[in-house]
Every structure is written in C-alpha cells, then in structure tokens.
Nucleic acid binder design. Structure first.
Lengths: 206, 206
DNA sequence: TGGATGTTTGGACAGTCGTCAAGACTTTCT
DNA sequence: AGAAAGTCTTGACGACTGTCCAAACATCCA
C-alpha cells in the first residue's frame, strides 16, 4: 500500500519537477533576451506554451522561479570545460584550447552569460538571491581551478595564485569581452582568446 | 541686448544644469541602494526634496535621467587613483598603496560600485545605455593604465599586457571581492588587497 | 506694480506588474 | 463508469509604473 502510493506520488513529483524544469527553461530563454529588470511573469508565460497563471501553480512567487532558473543554469554550465581537461595532453595544447573555448563561449552563449552576470548583480542588491549565486560562483571557481591545476601539472610548474584569484582574473577578462562583443566591437572574442592565452602562464610560478 | 539675454539665458541654463545635477545625485543615491530594476522615478523623487513631476521637467524620460546619472558618476570616479600615481616614488610603495586603495574603495564605496556594475550590465541588454557605458569603461581602463604604467616605470621593467587586459584582470578581482564583501564573507576586501598586490608584478615582463 | 517667464506641485491617465481564486479540463484510481 | 486528484485557463484585484498636464507658485524684468 505504502509502496503504491509512494510510487504514485514519486511519479507525480517527477512530473511536477519536469514541468518546473520546462518552465524554468522557458524563463531562462526570456530572461536572457530581456534581462532581469525587463522580464515579467506574463512575458515568460507568453514565451512558453502555457498561460501566466500556471507559473503560480509551479512556483510560489517570482523569486522562487528566478531561483529555479539560476539553479538550472548552473547545472548546464559548470562542466563546460571539463572535456578540455580530461583530453588535454600538453600544457600548450590545453592553454590554446581553453583560450579558444572561452572565446567560442563568449561568442555563441553571449545571451546566457549576460543573464548570469545580471543575476549575479541582482545578488548585490537582493539578499534572497545571494545564497544560490554564491554557490554557483563557487562551482564556477572550481571549474576554472580544474583547468588551471591541470595546466600547471602538464607544465610541471607550481601555481602562484589561489583558486579565487585565478577565477577572478579570468572572469574579468570574460566580462569585458562579453560587453565589447555585444556592443559590436570587432575582434572582441579574438582578443579574449589572446588575453586568456597570455594570462594562463602568469598564474604559474616562475 | 543680446549680451544681456545671453547672460540671462546662460544663467538660466546654469541653474537648469545645476538642478539636473542635483536631481541626478539624488537618483544616484537611490539607485545605489535599490539597483536599477527596483528603482522608480517616484522613489527617486521621494529621496530628493522635490515631487515626482519635476523629474520630467528636467529630463525627457527615464533613460535620459539614468544616462545623466551615469555621466555624473563617471566624473567623480575616474580620478580615484590619480593621487596615488603622482605621489608614488617606488614600485613597491605604489604596489602596496594601490592594492590597499582598491580594498578601501571596495569597502567604503560598495553601494556605488554595485550600481556601476548594474548599469554596465544593463548595457548588455539595452542598446541605449551602451555608448555611455563603453565611454566610462574606456576611461576606467585608462585610469588603471596610468597606475600600471607608472608601476612599470618605477620598477624599470616593461609591461607584458595590453591596457584592456590589465583593466579586465583587475576589474575581475574587484567584482569578485565586491560580491563577497556585500555577502558578508569575512576578509573579502583584505583578500582583494592581497590578490591585487600579487597580480601587479605579473603584468610585467620577467 | 504688473505681466511674463520659469519652476514646482499633485493629480490623472493608461498600462503593466505580481498574485490569487473560481472554474474548466485532464488524468488517475477504484 | 464515476469519483477524486491533479493541471491549466481565465479574469480579476490592488498596487505600482512612466508619462503628461493644468494649475499654483516663484522669480524676473519693464
């Protein structure tokens, strides 16, 4: 008996979670187009296949929806460069591949990244976003750290920076490139690749 | 006759510009507290000594007001570290003073800086902000470049990075520290000082 | 002093916002 | 089959938004 109801409720929970994820994906698309300040629940619903009322069936309020978006975003981006890490055989190869991958991401996922920066900024004002944002930020830092430590290992030289410094430095380059790329500055992403390529060795001890 | 009216109209223009600046200052205070997404014209007016209607007497619309705020912000921040540059006598002294100044700014002007990052992010979505934001960003880059070149001169070693790379790297450290500081992470600004102190020499050729 | 000009107020407007709830529709179980 | 539970739509609500305007107020010169 309990097994049956458990199975049922689990199935329902799964369906519930599935639809939540589906709505969060729609919301992410809208948010990445308009930005946090200009995105309304009705706009999100309009870009999905549901009406605006359904959002309050799956999410308590707007904050919970946005939070779910942030969490979903995290899942799909924190392993972005892991493929590079496991296939890397030489320091120079990883250095070049990572720099190029940064540039490609900046070019092709520009909208999603400007949303991440937007939400991260909201956390500077709204306390309710901080926990999730800091958690993602930490995960991104670790992702970068995997790249950097692998690079150091392959180069057989010790690192000269902390994980947080490495992340801060590279993230700064990316932010800058994203702004220029979206503003139509020529060669913004190529410059990012060059700058990252130039920066990686500086993270190692001489 | 024309001289008189010129004098009058100039005086009126000055008064007009003065009030604009006064309102922009009020708006900046409100924006830095609430962030772009949560700031309304009525809220801005309420934090000033005027009613909400007056904003439309001095600014065509909200975009023009925000733009005026951005321009005003620029004027007061682009010379922030110039004092350091002109008084610096040794590379090590400048290195330490700059790192400490970054940390102090992050601690004491946190609200204003989160606003800058917020508005810079709006430019990623809203085309109308881009021109002014890119102009400020360029000015900030030059401000950092003055520090970095002076540091290189005093150290008597050539630089190994472009102005844009130097700015991107240091800005990334600052952004990260600002988030952590506002989130209440202990030692966030001290870590910023340490990271910047550690980073400066890496911008020089070995 | 009186009239013209410049400045400020406060209310009204048409929209939009997040939220909610009543009811219709669907699916599921007995 | 019919009842029960889950899902979705639709319309409404009060609050808030940017914008505009008529009228009140202040300042100025003739």
């Amino acid at each position: 008996m309990t097994e049956v109801t458990d199975r049922i409720s689990r199935r329902q929970v799964d369906k519930f979670a599935e639809r939540r994820a589906q709505l969060a994906t729609s919301a992410l698309r809208t948010l990445s187009e308009l930005g946090y300040a200009r995105t309304s629940l009705r706009e999100i619903a309009q870009n999905s296949e549901f009406s605006h009322g359904v959002l309050h069936y799956y999410f308590r309020d707007k904050v919970e929806l946005i939070t779910a978006c942030v969490r979903q975003y995290k899942a799909e981006c924190v392993t972005r460069y892991d493929e590079l890490v496991v296939t890397a055989t030489t320091a120079e190869g990883l250095r070049k591949d990572f720099a190029d991958a940064l540039a490609t991401t900046c070019r092709e996922d520009a909208s999603m990244h400007r949303l991440w920066y937007d939400l991260r900024n909201q956390a500077l004002f709204e306390e309710s976003f901080r926990k999730d944002v800091l958690e993602i930020d930490q995960t991104l830092e670790l992702m970068i750290w995997r790249v950097v430590t692998t690079y150091a290992d392959l180069a057989d030289r010790p690192l000269a920076v902390t994980p947080s410094t490495a992340y801060g430095l590279l993230d700064g380059l990316f932010t800058q490139a994203l702004l220029r790329h979206l503003a139509g500055v020529p060669n913004a992403t190529e410059d990012l690749a060059a700058a990252a390529h130039q920066t990686l060795p500086k993270l190692l001890q001489r």
